[in-house]
């Protein structure tokens, strides 16, 4: 086996414009295998735009991305999911009218194969795969701590569990990189603590985590490294402590929360 590179995701000189507006300009960063990497910055700084570029929802205008040794610049979201990037959404985008279990089962889609004929004939292979999908989905629901009946429609889960369900669904795709867009938005301190523990467990299992968050305490307590975006530019990167004391970051983002 060739020694694999230390870097899982590398962004070089990323630029993105909307109309005449530069949403991102010359953003470079690299995320290492197995770390929890935080991305912070004021609202509208371009964090979610960068997320959408990494996960293929937006096409980039400048720069290059290398994921797990392969370069890509224009790639469809579903192919990136295959490559091992899974994500959650800031506004929670579950399949609202499907059950919690079905939501996670959809996440297994790309690691399974049954097609039309398998579905129609329901041969032994198709049945076995279907059972494995359901079993795996139940395990994942348990793993993220959803105790409600798995037949509950996604939209009827409490808010906190919807966030967890999104994580379970993303984990079902067997990602190498799990990208979370504000996973604790709208959660209180206790719920945040419990989600933090979950993210640590996920990291311990070898999955790299990329995190957008406004919860400074969570970022400081959880991330190995942090990058700060402001007006589409990276203004700082480093250990959480360094970033917290960076005057530019305090001025643009942290304000009084730095203490």
């Amino acid at each position: 086996m060739t020694p694999r590179s230390d870097t899982l995701l590398e962004l070089t000189g990323i630029g993105k414009h909307f109309g005449g507006l530069a949403a991102l300009s010359d953003v470079s960063l690299h995320i290492r295998h197995g770390e929890i990497y935080g991305l912070i910055g004021p609202n509208g700084a371009g964090k979610t735009t960068l997320f959408n570029i990494i996960t293929g929802l937006y096409q980039l205008d400048e720069g290059a991305i290398t994921f797990d040794g392969t370069a890509y610049s224009h790639c469809k979201p579903h192919l990136l999911a295959h490559a091992g990037i899974a994500r959650t959404f800031q506004n929670i985008r579950l399949f609202a009218n499907m059950t919690a279990l079905e939501n996670v089962m959809v996440g297994r889609h790309l690691r399974t194969r049954t097609g039309i004929w398998g579905a129609l004939l329901r041969n032994a292979a198709a049945r076995a795969e279907e059972r494995a999908i359901a079993r795996r989905a139940r395990e994942l629901l348990h793993y993220v701590g959803i105790e409600r009946p798995h037949q509950t429609l996604a939209k009827h889960l409490p808010y906190g569990e919807q966030r967890r369900l999104e994580i379970a669904r993303a984990l079902a795709t067997e990602p190498k990189l799990l990208a979370l867009d504000e996973p604790v938005a709208g959660m209180n301190a206790t719920e945040t603590e419990s989600l933090k523990a979950l993210l640590q467990t996920i990291r311990a299992s070898g999955i790299t985590v990329l995190l957008i968050e406004h919860d400074v305490k969570l970022i400081l307590g959880l991330c190995d490294r942090v990058a700060v975006l402001d007006y589409g530019k990276k203004i700082a990167e480093g250990l959480p402590e360094e970033v917290r004391q960076n005057p530019a970051v305090i001025a643009a983002y942290l304000g009084g929360a730095a203490e």
Partner: peptide, 21 residues
């Protein structure tokens, strides 16, 4: 303090994510 300002709670989950079907 305990309920809303942050106290510890252990998460569920004990199996490895690495298992592949």
């Amino acid at each position: 303090q305990r309920a809303y300002l942050g106290g510890g709670r252990e998460p569920a989950g004990s199996f490895s994510l690495k298992t592949r079907d």
